[in-house]
Amino acid sequence: MRRLVALILLSMLLPLQAGADEANVQGFDSLQEEQRYRDLTSELRCPKCQNQNIADSNAPIAKDMRDRVYRMMQDGASNEDIVGALVDRFGEFVRYKPEVDRRTILLWATPAIAVGVGLLAVAGIVIRSRRRNGQKTVLTAEEQARADRLLSDKDRE
């Protein structure tokens, strides 16, 4: 009987995601908010560390930045606002995903350009190969006659 009660109590714990979230470090209301916080903090760079995001860093400035992210989330700010506020203070350096602007257009276009050039080259190879293909299968009358002779010679052997 006690085991049954324990099982019932235990199973009541499971769907209570919101209850368990009270225990999360920052104190979010829902798993979605916690996830959003994680996503934001993993896309922002700690300005002091050797290439770490603020989610994983132990540096004091990273903690300050995390706190600011949390507070702005509680105030209802959008992701753009939050990242923007940090960029305003610390510069583009803290953004791990560079903005698409004049400076970075070449960067973002690299895969497309590389693949594009490659496809053009391959297309060129295929087309040229086809052209050669086409030429080869057309014999002149003389070549055709010679081929016939050779083939009929072989048959007789």
Partner: peptide, 13 residues
């Protein structure tokens, strides 16, 4: 200027 290029960029591209 100083720019950072990290996970979000690479994962996306």
């Amino acid at each position: 200027g100083r720019l950072s290029i990290g996970e979000p960029f690479f994962n996306l591209t």
